[in-house]
Amino acid sequence: MPSRRPARGRRTGTNRTGRRKGRRGGGFGWTDLFLWGVAAVLAYAALRSALPFARSHLPWFVASAVAVLAAAAAVPIVRARTVAARQRRWFEANLELERVDRLTGPEFETLTAGLLRRDGFRQIRELGGSGDRGVDLTAVGPDGRRYAFQCKRYAGSVGAPEVRNFLGALAHAFAGHTGVLVTSGRLTRQALAEAGEAGLILVERDRLAGWLRGEPLPHEPLRSG
């Protein structure tokens, strides 16, 4: 008996099921459209609520924006002014040091005495000369302590022998005084080491420039490190 052929145009159940699944999986469904609609309504409501607030606070928003822009623009200006002020102080300090370099020894001692008066020291005595016994100035500080100063207007370096002579004066004729060594130069490494061990207050060239510009004289001795 001849086998029966499936009728033309008949669709099997598998094909119908596959096509039905394809229609369900593609495009937007009613649920998606509903969710998008709800989101649009909420966004519109939020925008409607925010507009009156923005209109009523518009000057505040504008002022805030202007302040932020002004601050951003001021940063480079402030930085440039800071650099210019630092350079100006550097030039002023060097001009002062050049003036100091032209002084004689006694004039340098007089300059130091004037700086002490400016800083509130009292009972200032200038002892410089051949019989100064290693100390050029004595004074009483604002803290009530007695100070002895050795002033060295040097173009070069102050060596260890000068430090030792000063320490000898502090140990004998000026015992009980706090020693301060003021110089327009700098100390050698050995001189720095011995001054640090003895606890001297040192005013070398860089610190002298600051003192001339109005910075206070340090009152704490140098500690060797």
Rank of each mutant, 00 (worst) to 15 (best):
R133S: 11
A7I: 02
L97V: 07
R4G: 01
R146E: 14
V38W: 07
L42E: 08
D101T: 10
S49K: 02
A173Q: 07
R205H: 07
D32L: 11
R213Y: 01
G176K: 11
T138A: 04
Q123C: 03
E107Q: 15
A169T: 02
A171I: 01
D119R: 13
C151P: 05
W211M: 14
R8I: 00
F34I: 01
L202M: 08
W90T: 15
A65V: 06
A85I: 08
V163L: 04
D132M: 05
G168P: 00
L137H: 04
C151E: 02
G29H: 02
E220P: 01
A155G: 14
A54I: 14
R133L: 13
S49W: 08
R16M: 05
G37K: 08
G25T: 13
L137S: 03
P161K: 05
P161M: 03
V41Q: 09
L116R: 13
H172T: 15
D206L: 15
R11Y: 03
T82G: 14
T188R: 08
T31Q: 11
L217V: 14
N15F: 05
F121P: 13
R189F: 00
R23H: 09
G156D: 13
A65F: 08
S3C: 03
G196A: 08
E204T: 12
G176Y: 10
G13Y: 03
G120S: 09
L58P: 00
E220Q: 14
E220T: 14
L127K: 00
A84V: 07
S64K: 10
A73K: 10
H219T: 15
H177F: 15
R24G: 05
L33P: 00
F108Q: 01
L137I: 15
A70Q: 14
R205A: 09
G141N: 06
G13T: 11
L115I: 15
W60F: 08
V83D: 06
V163R: 02
L97H: 06
G27I: 09
R118S: 15
E92C: 08
R164Q: 11
M1S: 08
H219C: 11
L181Y: 03
F174G: 02
T183V: 06
E92Q: 14
G128D: 02
T188S: 11
R186W: 08
E194A: 09
R19F: 05
P106S: 05
P216T: 12
V68Q: 03
L115D: 07
T14N: 04
G25Y: 07
A72E: 13
R79A: 15
C151Y: 00
F121G: 12
A65K: 09
V68E: 10
R118F: 12
R164D: 09
